[in-house]
Amino acid sequence: MASFPPAQQAQIIRANQRDLYHVSALKEQFESVLRTWLGTRWLSRWEKEVDLLVKLVYYGLTTVRATQTLGEEYTDIWQYSSLHRAVPPPALMRATLVLLPTLPGYLVARMDDWLPMHRIPAKWRTTLKQIPSILEVLAELNLAAFYIQGVYYDLVKRVLGIRKVSSTPHNPLVRPPSYSLLGILLGVRLLHRLVTFIRANYVEEQASEKGKLRTQNLGEESFLDERPVSQFLGPVDPEGQPAKPAEEDERTMLDVASIPEELRAGRNCTLCLEERTDSCCTECGHLFCWSCIVGWGREKAECPLCRQALDLKRLVPIYNL
């Protein structure tokens, strides 16, 4: 393409900004019509489909038809296939150029609605949820490379080898602006995100290893706020110890002595039949003494009242009942 010089960075950036503006304006007009006909609730439900349709219509009537988009027409640039050395690129490549940036994002956004996530293995669920973040990082890497090199504004165009050429000859007396500093700043931000990600994973691994060592050293000990449950229980065999008077309960905000007798009668623990001390709540909502329910749970992993499964790690301390 000796007769067509490559498009300058400023032309490509302005063309992209212009296209975004027209897509946004078209979407607003489309939503206004649908809101009038079908209502706001319907529009909120199908917002992602509307966004996909607008992009397919805009780029389908321009790029797929081998014509300039409004942004490209504004800056007078054309798409050029470096693989086929053709302006415009072949029809299949033009269709791919429209579908690849739009369909994957839509499918990822609707993934939770279509896939039965509870039936997918946890490892695959984690991978699927990371797809948007991975695509975002790749797009930023490509943008940083564009600001430094000056070609391939979009990741899809880089993969397909779609460049931009200008039908306006460059002025040799005018030096084009440089955007290398923006590329360097984007690279620094990505490096910071990478360091933060590695550090977070390292901290998580260290916490996991500490948890394993703690479990190995203390058997099946449970922890609450990094403190072993045994510290809350005090004696190893709390059931063999005399009941602690409610007035001596240090783990409550209530002034037990000032509570009327008829109300204190409703504070009895159903296991020890004494007034509750160190009160805690199970997942099913029943209240017991901390030592009583932990002693019970070590023998039988179910609530003594409703027989629902009991997990000692999910007991919640209660300070105001």
Rank of each mutant, 00 (worst) to 15 (best):
G39N: 00
R41M: 04
R41Q: 13
L43G: 02
L43F: 03
L43S: 07
S44Y: 06
E47C: 09
K48Q: 12
V50Y: 02
D51Y: 07
D51I: 08
V54M: 02
V54L: 05
K55D: 01
K55G: 03
L56V: 00
L56S: 00
L56M: 11
V57G: 02
V57M: 08
Y59R: 11
T63A: 10
V64H: 06
V64Y: 04
Q68A: 12
L70V: 10
T75H: 04
D76Q: 15
D76V: 05
I77V: 15
W78D: 10
W78F: 14
W78Q: 12
Q79T: 08
Q79D: 07
Q79R: 06
Y80P: 06
Y80T: 01
S81I: 02
L83G: 06
R85H: 13
P88I: 03
P90W: 02
P90F: 08
A91K: 09
L92R: 11
M93N: 07
R94L: 02
A95C: 13
A95N: 07
T96N: 11
L97D: 15
L99N: 02
L99H: 03
L100P: 00
L100E: 04
T102Y: 09
T102N: 15
T102P: 00
P104T: 00
G105I: 09
Y106W: 15
L107Q: 05
V108Y: 00
A109K: 09
R110S: 11
M111T: 09
D112L: 08
D113M: 05
M117K: 05
